[in-house]
Design a protein around this nucleic acid. Sequence first.
DNA 1: CGTAGTGTTGAATTGAATCAAGTGTCGTGG
DNA 2: CCACGACACTTGATTCAATTCAACACTACG
Lengths: 261, 261
Amino acid sequence: MNTGNNSSDAEGMKIPLQANPPVAKVCPHNVNISCASCRLNELCLPIALSKSEVHQLDEIVERNRPYKKGDHLYRQSDEFKSVYAVRSGSFKSYVLSDNGQGRVTGFFLPGEIIGMDGISSKKYANSTSALEHSSICEIPFVQLERLSHQLPNLQHHFFAIMGNEIAKDQQIHTLLSSYTAEERTASFLLGLSSRYARVSLSPTRFLLPMTRSDIGEYLGLTVETMSRIFTALQRKGLIAVNNREVELLDIEALRAIVTAS
Amino acid sequence: MNTGNNSSDAEGMKIPLQANPPVAKVCPHNVNISCASCRLNELCLPIALSKSEVHQLDEIVERNRPYKKGDHLYRQSDEFKSVYAVRSGSFKSYVLSDNGQGRVTGFFLPGEIIGMDGISSKKYANSTSALEHSSICEIPFVQLERLSHQLPNLQHHFFAIMGNEIAKDQQIHTLLSSYTAEERTASFLLGLSSRYARVSLSPTRFLLPMTRSDIGEYLGLTVETMSRIFTALQRKGLIAVNNREVELLDIEALRAIVTAS
DNA sequence: CGTAGTGTTGAATTGAATCAAGTGTCGTGG
DNA sequence: CCACGACACTTGATTCAATTCAACACTACG
C-alpha cells in the first residue's frame, strides 16, 4: 500500500551510475547484507552504536528488493509508516502543484535518510521515487521509536539526523531566497561533491543521477537556465560537463561564486 | 556566553503587541509560571504528557527573564546548549551573508520551538533575536534528551516537533522555488493567520511583529516589492494594512492566490 | 529504426531588483 | 512635551536576471 510498484527485476546486475564504482566486490544492490557488514554503517543509522545495539537495529530493518528507476517508495499523503535509508542508487522527493507540474524537494544519496517529513502529520508530505536502479533499507518508525527508547545512543543519533535535516533545509532557504542562478548551481554541485565524498566516491568526477529539469525544479530555476549555467560554468573552465557526467575542475572558484553572495 | 545581552527591564509591563490581547489576566511575560499552568501547554512541549510527566519537564525548564526587542537568544556558531519555547512575544532567526546583509530564516510565535538547527552540529546555524518584548522557556538539550529517554511520550512528541519543522521547511522550499511575490506574500499571511489562531488570537486581525524588510528577507523579496504587494492586495480588497496592523478581509481569495500556482 | 524524453541555444518578454527620492513613525533626550 | 534623528515604509522610473516561447539536436531504449 505505501510502497510503490516495484519492478520484478530483483536480480538486476546493472553497473551503478557512479563514475567511480565502490571498491567492495559485492553488488551494491545486494539484499542480504546486515547493518553490521554494510559499508555505509559509519554514516547511516548505526553510527555510534555498539555491536549488540547494531544487531538490535538490524532486527527491525526491512531490506526490500531493489527499486527500478521511477519506482516509488511512497506517494504524497500515503500513510506514514517508515523512514528509509538509501543503500545504493539515489532518489528524489517531489510534490505536485495544483497546476500539475512538480517541484523537487530533495535528492537522496547512499547513507541518507528519507521520509522524516511524515513523522508529525502521519502522512508523507511528498512523493519519493528512485532516480536509478537503487536499494533501500526500510525502518518501520514505530519500531525505531521503540528501539530509540531502549538505546539512548540511537535516540541521540536520530535527534541529530533530524536536526541535520533541519539545518540543511534552512541553508536551502537562504540559497533560494538570495542566490543567483549561478550561485545556486555552484552551491548545488559543491553539495553533491561533498555528499559523494562522504560515501568514498570521487568529489570531483561524478554522474548526475537526476535530469537538468529535476535540478531546476529543486533550485527554483527552469531547465533552460540550468542548461545555460552549466554551459557558462564550462566556458569559464570551472567544470566539464558531458550529459550527466560532471567534473569539477576548479573547486575553489566554485566556492568563490557561492561565497560571493 | 550563549545568551545575548538581556536588558535589565525585568518587570516590563508593556501590553503585548497582539491585536487581541489574551484573556488570561496574568502578565504574559510572567516568569513564575509552571508548564502545568501555562496557557500554552496544549501546544508546546507538554502536549500529550501526563501530570507527573509535565512536572518532570517543569524541573528542567529554565524561565529566563524577559527579552527586550533586539536581544539575542543566541548567535550564529554559539555552542548549542538549549532549545527554546516561546512563551510570549516573537523572535526571528537570521543568518548574515558574507557581504553583510542578513537573510531571515524563520519567525517564532508563542508555543513554537527555537534552536533545533543546532542539534546535529552542536553549534547554532543562525542567530535569533526578539522582535518585541518577549519571554522564553529555555530547555537544556542534554536534559531534554535524558528526560525523553525516560518518557516515551516526550520522545515521541519531540520527534513529531522536529518532523513538523522538516515538513514546514520543505513547504517553504516549494514556495521559494516556484511562487511569485504575490503568492509568497499571500501564503505568508495565511500562515501567520493560522499560527495566531493556534494560540487563540484573531486569525483575521493581527499586528505584524516584524518589519517589511524582515518579511522580504524571509520570502526572498526586497522591501520595495513587499510594500508594493501589500498595497496591491489592499487595492484588491483582500487585506487592509496600516503599518504593522493587518486585517485579512478575504481569506478565500488569498487562498485562491496561493493555490493558483 | 523510430520515438519520447532530455538537453541546448536563441530571441523576446517580464517580474522583481535596483536606484532614487521622498513621507511617516517612534523612541529619546533636551 | 516637543524636536530631533534614526529607522521604517512607500512610490516611481529604470534595469536586469531569469522566464517564456520556439526551434532544434542528441541519446537512449524498446
